[in-house]
Nucleic acid binder design. Structure first.
Lengths: 217, 217
DNA sequence: ACCTGAACACCGTTCAAGT
DNA sequence: ACCTGAACACCGTTCAAGT
């Protein structure tokens, strides 16, 4: 792409000065534009108008940069007020989490599969666990409830952002016509796997789990 | 590593002849030994005792090879007999799926995040959907039930194979000591996140979902 | 203090060539 | 038919050097 318009050539070439904030913002944009796989420090440098190596002055490694993106994303999540009923707090967190995954679907792959044991990560986990304690569950049941709902939320968001509805990932997918002919029940169900059904399907499982855990009736 | 012992040098150097079967087997072994990220056609060639490029005679690309590994893994899954109760068939499939994820935890990351729209993939999906139809669910409820249980199974296996119990993934994790001090409820719950609790936790959520879907009482 | 540029040890893949 | 080797366009990162 051409350098930005309406500034004089030297200004455009110099760009703004580099800093963590600007690097992080551009990194997230690049990941969403090109995907995690294609994301490289060299392309990021190009996007920032600097050498790839300049980034290394601000972040010791690519992994540190990605960690910073995780923290930034976690810190952007709204935390529901503690006076809400525990089930509502959980619903609110789940809702915020899904919204985040939809907002940054490609970065979400990294979010979802890396443990959030940074300071912000643990703080967020504590917030969620609190909801289960607030519902009156004993430590073991709180831990298991947390886990079970976490499994569900993790699987749902990953599927919504990277799954079936994103098209085939096989190099040689079975053509739709063949699916229709050989496995009509799959073709028929496929209709309910599309994005317009995401909310209703997610809600079904969430309700079953919250009810089953005795947090909702 | 040294060339294999007890054969004359030329025989050892020649190794066995290359074929898809041998390449796939060695690829899976290499992935489990070194991880998905580190898996490269060049290292695989080294492992096989040939040039990296020789692999390209048997597979058009690395993606085709990974697709073949997905198919091979799917085809290795036992399919429960149709005369079992639907809920038992689902439990049996979930059990087999989890066993597979534990057997190939590192390759599982690829398995889980790529859509199985190859022939073997769709056949497997059809098998699972059948269980929901056999339980008497209408197409919409069958599709949603399938999805909800699939979300749960996906999240659980990913967490079991790549999650919390595998240790920190942050570059700068909050030290255990700090977690203990700042977020005691997280430290306390962490005990139930260890592998010895995987089965009981998984069973809890599975039971809640199957009961909620009316497939088990 | 902040950024650059050459260099190193890697990638996947193309292509022409060997046996 | 099957395998090789050089080459191309990429990676992340180190390090010494520039301003």
């Amino acid at each position: 792409m051409p350098t930005s318009k309406s500034t004089s050539p030297p200004a455009a070439a110099a760009r703004q000065t580099l800093n963590r904030e600007r690097i992080e913002t551009e990194a997230l944009a690049l990941i969403e534009a090109q995907g995690l796989e294609a994301f490289s420090t060299r392309k990021l440098g190009q996007q920032l108008g600097c050498e790839a190596m300049s980034i290394y002055y601000h972040f010791p490694s690519k992994a540190h940069l990605l960690d910073a993106l995780v923290d930034r994303t976690l810190n952007g999540l709204p935390i529901p007020p503690k006076n809400l009923r525990p089930a509502l707090r959980i619903r609110s967190i789940a809702q915020a989490w899904r919204a985040m995954s939809r907002q940054s679907p490609r970065f979400y792959l990294w979010m979802a599969l890396h443990r959030w044991n940074s300071e912000s990560g643990v703080r967020f986990l504590a917030e969620v666990l609190d909801c289960f304690y607030a519902a009156g569950l004993k430590p073991e049941q709180a831990a298991r409830g947390f886990r079970v709902l976490g499994y569900y939320l993790l699987g749902a968001t990953l599927d919504e952002t990277s799954g079936y509805a994103q098209g085939p990932s096989s190099v040689q997918p079975l053509p739709d016509e063949a699916v229709q002919r050989l496995y009509p029940q799959v073709a028929q169900a496929g209709r309910y796997f599309q994005p317009e059904h995401f909310d209703a399907t997610f809600e079904l499982g969430l309700k079953l789990l919250l009810q089953g855990l005795g947090m909702e009736d």
